[in-house]
């Protein structure tokens, strides 16, 4: 099953299971511009697959109200690049509702945000806005890399009693396909997964970067470089024990993501290692991330320069192994 089908299946199964679950967003009635909700309006009706006006703050704000009213909304942001008008609703409202009301109110909303570059998206159809929301207590953030995790984490997010920001990488939609069981399951929020065992270097990644890292690791194996790959899966709360365990295995750590380097998830992971594992490190912690420029340029040459690729990360991984 593809990653995209996994997302659609998770939504459909949860809507079948619980009448309180519904989806709202722009153009989702016809299936959404990504096809994530394809066929769902026919099955569940227009009120449960609700085409909204073109207003991101309202999509999230209305979802928050409905969630406090007992429903389990899935708010779809068409492209993560367009999420910023809703930032106040996410950070000032959703993330603080339980805390500010002293546990009187809570807000079980899921905000799905298709993120990342796929080629030809330019500045505003390619962004990775994780770092804007990362570090907001009260908010959970997930970013699956496999179809199995996409389904299991989306189900877990819908059933969670706190707001979850669900980053789905657009490049994974059709590129990633793996075994997804028919039976109901969830993937716990807050748990990373070891994707590959290795002894020379550790790569910590999430989203599409996991696939680049795995491809590079396969190639480096031919050069007798053994790579351990940890997929964070959840960005907030970070799975600290898993990060420390994966790092301690090799002592040479690279953190790899498509979001900008400064202030990204990698900075926090590096800080965790500096605080808790410094004396077990055999090399400086490396962050392999795009440069601190606003976003991906549209022209193929600019995009290629910005984006991490398996080839480029492989070179950086080899250098780390040779240190």
């Amino acid at each position: 099953m593809t990653y995209l089908e996994a997302i659609r299946t998770a939504m459909s199964e949860e809507m079948q299971r619980d009448d309180n679950v519904f989806v709202l967003g722009e153009d989702i009635g016809k299936g959404g511009v990504m096809n994530a909700t394809k066929g769902m309006r026919d099955r569940f009706g227009e009120w449960r697959v609700l085409d909204t006006p073109l207003t991101e703050s309202a999509i999230v704000g209305v979802a928050i109200g409905a969630a406090m009213g007992g429903m389990r909304p899935i708010a779809e942001i068409q492209f993560a690049d367009f999420i910023y008008p809703a930032t106040n609703q996410i950070i000032s409202e959703a993330a603080k509702i339980r805390y500010r009301s002293n546990n009187d109110w809570y807000c079980p909303v899921v905000i799905r945000a298709p993120y990342g570059a796929t080629g030809g998206g330019g500045l505003y159809h390619s962004q990775c806005p994780e770092s804007v929301f990362f570090g907001t207590p009260g908010l959970k953030i997930v970013a699956p890399s496999s179809a199995y995790d996409a389904k299991g984490l989306l189900k877990a997010s819908i059933r969670d009693n706190d707001p979850v920001l669900y980053f789905e990488h657009k490049k994974c939609y059709l590129y990633v396909s793996d075994e997804v069981p028919d039976e109901d399951y969830t993937v716990p929020i807050g748990k990373a997964a070891v994707k590959r065992e290795g002894g020379d270097i550790t790569v910590i990644a999430y989203g599409m970067a996991v696939h680049h890292a795995l491809k590079a690791a396969d190639e480096l194996e031919k050069e007798d470089i053994s790579v351990h790959v940890l997929d964070l899966r959840t960005l907030q709360p970070l799975d600290q024990p898993a990060i420390l365990e994966a790092a301690a295995k090799t002592g040479k750590i690279m953190i790899f993501h498509e979001d900008n380097k400064t202030g990204g998830v990698g900075a926090e992971a590096a800080a965790i290692l500096a605080e808790q594992l410094l004396y077990e490190l055999d090399a400086p912690v490396i962050r392999f991330c795009p440069p601190d420029i606003p976003a991906v340029g549209m022209s193929p040459t600019l995009e290629k320069f910005f984006l991490p690729t398996a080839d480029r990360v492989k070179e950086a991984m080899r250098r780390l192994a040779e240190l």
Partner: peptide, 21 residues
Amino acid sequence: VTASSPVGTQVLHAVGFSLMS
């Protein structure tokens, strides 16, 4: 319904409650 300080945000929540209704 619980309120915050940035003004006007509650209007969208009210719309959400009415959608639920």
